[in-house]
Write a protein that binds this DNA or RNA. Structure first.
Lengths: 103, 103
DNA sequence: TAAAAATACTCCATAGGTATTTTAT
DNA sequence: ATAAAATACCTATGGAGTATTTTTA
């Protein structure tokens, strides 16, 4: 299981369509289908009921969705946190902080 | 950012060594180094202070660790949940359930 | 029968491997 | 001096693309 699969899953769950999800995730429709197929294979469960008219979550899909959101949420949290993390890259503001010597 | 990078990060944080982490993650030491380097580059922060004697977390590394554990925890939760999810793959126990017709 | 998903390939980006060098104690 | 991380280079897996063929309401 990798994050791109979880992102693709979320896109399908949200749009209710592989084609629309592919556009949202900026990948081709076959790539997205393969990505979901591999995820389902690894998990050993079908996550979606597919038909030309609609793509809906299976019971397992619903369960997966909840934790999937936790995973993606935690990832966004990481990035947001570190964006504010300048401890190791101290800002050099004017003359207050001299440029460190090259090592 | 991908899960393998987070897993590799966790291995280094836990073992305090790239070499030991590589063994734990079942990859080569250079592969693990590259993986962490790419993660640091993407995040724009150094996650570890490295020296031949010790590898320790930077302040940013500490912050990353917390949320990284959330991510990995959520992933394990997903798998554990779905392992119990047999709704879409009903067990065929003896004669009680006939094998579905091939479509 | 007309959409949407699934196949069948082809390609290439990059994760990962081996060999070696550099670094810091 | 030595153990550990970084670098150089190569390989190959599999993620992603295009073209096409099933599906099923």
């Amino acid at each position: 299981m990798e994050l791109y699969q979880i992102r693709h899953f979320a896109a399908v769950a949200e749009t209710g369509s592989f084609t629309k999800a592919a556009i949202r995730a900026a990948v081709s429709q076959p790539a997205l289908s393969a990505s979901i197929a591999k995820l389902e294979e690894e998990l050993g469960v079908k996550l979606f009921h597919r038909s030309p008219k609609s793509v809906t979550l299976t019971p397992a899909g619903h369960r997966f969705q909840m934790t999937a959101q936790e995973v993606l949420g935690a990832c966004n949290k990481v990035k947001a946190e570190l964006r504010a993390s300048v401890a190791d890259r101290p800002l050099r503001i004017g003359v207050l902080c001299r440029r460190p010597t090259r090592r």
